[in-house]
Design a protein around this nucleic acid. Structure first.
Lengths: 111, 111
DNA sequence: TTGTATTATTGCAATATTACGATAAAAATA
DNA sequence: TATTTTTATCGTAATATTGCAATAATACAA
């Protein structure tokens, strides 16, 4: 087994889970942190910054790119990555939609 | 390999990643959805609802419990699970802290 | 062209996750 | 007590993820 049964769930549930997965590794959080901080758009001094092998960073970048969170543009012989603000807002509201759904008062409260 | 190098990252980064991981499976999103919707606190009619085996549901519940998102209390022969509102707010603000850090204008903008 | 710098991809090895059947444990009921 | 109900845990199989060295692939410089 080990294969997620996506067909059992709604596309919304699958999408949110898949988004969360993009954030579910500290290296990817660190990459995002770096991009949030740094003025310049950035390439692979992430390798210096994070202490992971170049191949590993590249792999994490790809996952963030696949989730749409990053965009990269070729800048000479290096590649310039940055966050996609439009997508960022989208992602933010997807999570907020979830978080805002807790209607405070402890309802049937057994806990 | 296959082991995440947590020592390379800050505890904040590790914590957020670990939180995201709790949300990174559609079955766990579905469980949360169910708990957000349902008045009653709930046990394992999640098995009916989700179509996964009882053991699998139990495993997902445990991960959510370990992340602190759920609390369970023994209610006779069944167990009553519900979201922990305090923790929920905490989790919400952890994510919001991240999301709010994007300072709009495309800065050095190479992308 | 030849070399250098930068990033992606490929091909592993180690570990983690997902899923489920079988079984155990605890409480309610007959 | 014996049975049923409910949930957790164990063991196992299948798949996914993480990480890296080696190797492409691309652009620039000499």
């Amino acid at each position: 087994m080990g294969i997620t049964k996506k067909d059992l769930f709604t596309s919304q549930q699958n999408e949110l889970a898949s988004l969360a997965k993009a954030f579910a590794h500290p290296a990817r959080i660190a990459i995002i942190d770096y991009l949030l901080k740094s003025e310049t758009c950035i390439n692979g001094d992430l390798v210096q910054e994070l202490g992971l092998a170049q191949a590993t960073i590249s792999q994490h970048l790809r996952e963030l790119r696949d989730a749409g969170i990053l965009k990269g543009s070729i800048e000479g012989s290096s590649i310039c990555y940055c966050l996609d603000p439009t997508r960022w807002k989208e992602v933010e509201s997807q999570f907020n939609n979830l978080f805002s759904r807790l209607s405070e008062p402890a309802k049937g409260d057994c806990c």
